[in-house]
Lab assay of single mutants.
Amino acid sequence: DHWHVHIDGERIRLDGASEEFIRTLEELIRRGTDARELKEIIKEYLR
Rank of each mutant, 00 (worst) to 15 (best):
A35G: 11
I7W: 01
I7N: 01
T33A: 11
L25M: 07
E26D: 10
R30A: 13
E20N: 10
R13S: 15
Y45M: 11
D34M: 07
S18V: 06
T33V: 14
G9R: 03
L38F: 02
E44V: 03
E40I: 11
H2L: 04
E26K: 12
T24V: 13
I29D: 00
W3K: 15
S18A: 12
E19M: 14
L28W: 04
I42E: 00
E20Q: 11
L46K: 04
R23I: 11
A17E: 03
I42L: 11
R31F: 10
L25Q: 00
L28I: 07
L25T: 01
K39C: 02
R30W: 07
E19P: 14
D1M: 09
D8C: 05
K43E: 15
R13N: 15
E40N: 12
R11F: 15
H2Y: 10
E26M: 08
R23A: 12
I29P: 00
E10R: 05
D34H: 12
R23M: 13
I22K: 15
R47Q: 15
G16T: 09
K43I: 12
I29H: 02
K39G: 06
I42H: 00
E20W: 07
A17L: 06
I42N: 00
A35L: 10
G16Y: 11
D34W: 01
R47E: 15
D1S: 08
D8P: 02
K43L: 13
E37H: 11
D34G: 12
D34P: 15
I7S: 02
E27F: 03
S18C: 02
G32S: 04
I42W: 03
E26L: 10
E19S: 11
V5F: 05
E44F: 03
V5T: 10
L14T: 02
V5M: 05
D34Y: 01
I41S: 02
V5D: 03
L14Y: 02
H4V: 09
S18L: 05
K43H: 14
E10L: 06
L46V: 07
T33H: 08
R47W: 06
R36M: 13
L46Y: 14
E19W: 07
R47Y: 09
R30Y: 07
R13A: 15
I12H: 04
I29G: 01
I22M: 11
E19F: 07
K39A: 08
D15M: 08
L38W: 01
I29W: 03
R31E: 11
R30T: 10
I42T: 01
W3C: 05
G9P: 01
R13Y: 15
L28C: 05
D8L: 04
F21A: 02
H4A: 04
G9M: 03
S18H: 12
T24F: 13
H4C: 06
R47N: 14
D8R: 03
E44C: 10
L38R: 00
